[in-house]
């Protein structure tokens, strides 16, 4: 139990970081109605770009910006494969993801793992988040506000603010309309190809940003870090929706729900690990959780629906 409790701040921190990725998944999966598998690759791309740039002495914010842009580029590729080349969205994402494995290797100088020199106090101090701050902010070796929960929490709040503003603009509304009903969107003069690409670009930018933050947190970027990211993202989206979907209706709160979903996901992982599960089974567990949570609403509608009076929909 103490093992679990002491792991809790770390779990929440990780959940917050993955939550940013999950918000990216929310944009494609929920708003655009596209299951975008690019994220498994673009998550690592973000970390790779960050670790190489920051490692070679670049400014932290510049390295973060570069990671964001690299992710956006990955989203652009998927978007163009889907809209210009006519490849189904799910396959377009898989293609980009596969291609990104090589790209990520190339970015990381063909090493499977590249570490940040966090043993160097000066470098460590420059980082936005680190696993070391989790304890360090509590025992006084770092200021308390450097705790990843505070830093990433603020980061998330700002991102949610920006996204809330964006989806309230004409362009953001066009994007939402595209996901809601493409036919309607086109009839109202919206270039649905362009809005889809835009959504994929924004989503993968966020995913890469999350990857860059996790790379800092872990002190290294590893080529397989994004494997299964889409499932974690979906898990966060679904857990948040099941638990808080009825309470939070406002769009900003919905995004917050996704972040909370990711935190809950990581807390559950910690519980399971504390119970002694072999960590190798985690991916299986993640897949199972998502499968179950996707099944529940479907079965609810199919087998447990209350009979509705026929023709109710056609009556004004």
């Amino acid at each position: 139990m103490t093992g679990f409790l002491s792991a809790l701040p770390g779990a929440v921190s990780q959940g917050l970081i993955w939550g940013i990725m999950a918000i990216g998944v929310y944009i494609t999966y929920k708003i655009l109605d596209i299951a975008d598998l690019t994220v498994d690759g673009s998550f690592c791309t973000g970390g790779a770009v960050f670790v190489m740039l920051f490692g070679s002495g670049a400014n932290l914010w510049l390295a973060l910006l570069a990671a964001l842009l690299a992710g956006m580029l990955a989203g652009l590729v998927t978007g163009l494969l889907h809209t210009v080349c006519g490849i189904p969205a799910i396959l377009a994402g898989i293609l980009t993801q596969l291609g990104l494995y090589s790209v990520n290797m190339a970015i990381m100088d063909f090493k499977a793992s590249v570490a940040l020199s966090i043993t160097n106090g000066e470098t460590l101090n420059k980082l936005l988040v680190s696993l070391r701050f989790v304890k360090g902010a509590l025992d006084g070796s770092f200021p308390f506000w450097r705790h990843p929960i505070i830093v990433v929490g603020l980061f998330t709040a700002v991102l949610i603010g920006v996204l809330y503003w964006f989806f309230g603009t004409e362009l953001g509304a066009a994007l939402r309309a595209t996901g809601s009903n493409q036919n309607m969107a086109r009839a109202q003069g919206i270039n649905t190809d362009r809005t889809k690409v835009l959504g994929l670009v924004i989503s993968n930018g966020l995913v890469a940003l999350s990857g860059a933050l996790l790379c800092q947190y872990n002190g290294a970027n590893e080529i397989n870090v994004g494997r299964g990211a889409i499932v974690i993202g979906l898990a966060a989206v679904i857990i948040g929706e099941v638990l808080l979907g009825k309470v939070f209706r406002n769009f900003a709160l919905k995004l917050l729900t996704v972040s909370i979903g990711a935190i809950i996901y990581y807390i559950v992982l910690q519980v399971v690990l504390a119970l002694g599960l072999n960590p190798n089974y985690l991916k299986f567990l993640s897949a199972l959780v998502v499968a179950v949570f996707l099944t529940i609403p479907y079965w609810k509608g199919k087998y447990f629906a209350k009979p509705v009076k026929r023709g109710g929909d056609a009556n004004a």
Partner: peptide, 19 residues
């Protein structure tokens, strides 16, 4: 929101408020 989308038919969608 649906009406606001229709009101902007034929105009370019900008970063101004959607309604």
């Amino acid at each position: 929101e649906n009406l606001a989308l229709a009101a902007r038919r034929g105009k370019s969608r900008t970063l101004r408020a959607s309604i």
